[in-house]
Each structure stands twice: as C-alpha cells, then as structure tokens.
C-alpha cells in the first residue's frame, strides 16, 4: 500500500509567523500531535509538535539532566508559556522535516515512525508541498482490515 492510499488529506498547517498560542489552540482543536509549518509558497519548512513546545518551556537543565524531577512546579512552565505565547513558531519548530512521498510504501512509513518515534508523518509532493498526513493509527487501522 502506498502513502497516498492511507494518508488523511487534511492540510491543516501553520505559517512561520503563527504564534505559539495559536499553535497550541490549533493542536488542541484538531486533535493532531504535530503540525507542518509552511512558507509563503506552501512548502513545508518545519514541523512543530507538542514535544517541541514542551521542550521550549522547560529550563535547559531538564534536558541536560534528562529528568524533570527537579522541576519546582508547573507554575514556572505556565509563566514561561505566557512569555513565549506571542512569539512566532519559527523560533521553536524543528527544521529537519522527516516526510514521506505519495508513492512511498506502508513499510517505509512504518519504519520511519518506529525508528524516529513519530506519531505522524507529513506527505509531500515533488515541490515539498503538503498533500496529506499519515498517522500511526491510520497504518494500524489499515493493517487490521
């Protein structure tokens, strides 16, 4: 099975100057775990995920210690979120886009998801424009048939 047969044709995405606040709102509304970030020509130039946002909120030492046990409270994260809420998502997105092509096989998609620990992969055309998204659950749902 090919990526274009299993993907959701949902082009929900954000632009480079979309604010952190709006991305959180959109992730909550859409139920997606991450969103592609597109430039003025609609080309995917980054990905912003819940994980990226959490990383942006955590103090540097949490990454260093690989533990959140030293966090005093969530209030600190709330304050930090308030600070960065109006900032553009371009500052926090991951620029290395792991994506699939419409003709990639389901095996390739599954391999990417397992190896990279991804919940979903954007599917891009030859000009790197978003044409769909494959979620882990889409693959599992197909396999169950």
């Amino acid at each position: 099975m090919k990526a274009h047969e299993v993907m959701r044709r949902d082009l929900t995405s954000v632009e480079l100057d979309t604010t952190v606040d709006h991305v959180i709102y959109l992730l909550h509304q859409s139920g997606l775990a991450s969103l592609p970030v597109v430039d003025e020509d609609g080309r995917v130039v980054g990905i912003i995920s819940e994980r990226d946002l959490i990383r942006a909120l955590l103090p540097g030492y949490v990454d260093m210690l690989e533990s959140s046990a030293f966090l005093p409270s969530l209030d600190q994260l709330g304050r930090k979120l308030h600070e960065i809420g109006r900032k553009p998502i371009a500052e926090f997105m991951v620029r290395e886009v792991i994506a699939a092509r419409p003709d990639d096989s389901d095996l390739h998609l599954a391999d990417l998801m397992i190896r990279k620990g991804l919940k979903q992969i954007p599917v891009l055309d030859d000009e790197n424009r978003l044409v769909g998204v494959v979620r882990r659950i889409d693959l599992l749902h197909r396999l169950r048939r």
Partner: peptide
C-alpha cells in the same frame, strides 16, 4: 470535527481554519 471526518472519508482534501 465531524464535518472534517466526513469530508476526508469522501476523499476531499481539507484545509480549514479552526
């Protein structure tokens, strides 16, 4: 969400503002 799911199920590509 229901509207979106129905559209996707019919093969429509969707690009909505929430």
């Amino acid at each position: 969400q229901i509207v979106l799911q129905d559209l996707l199920a019919h093969g429509v590509t969707a690009n909505f503002v929430w």
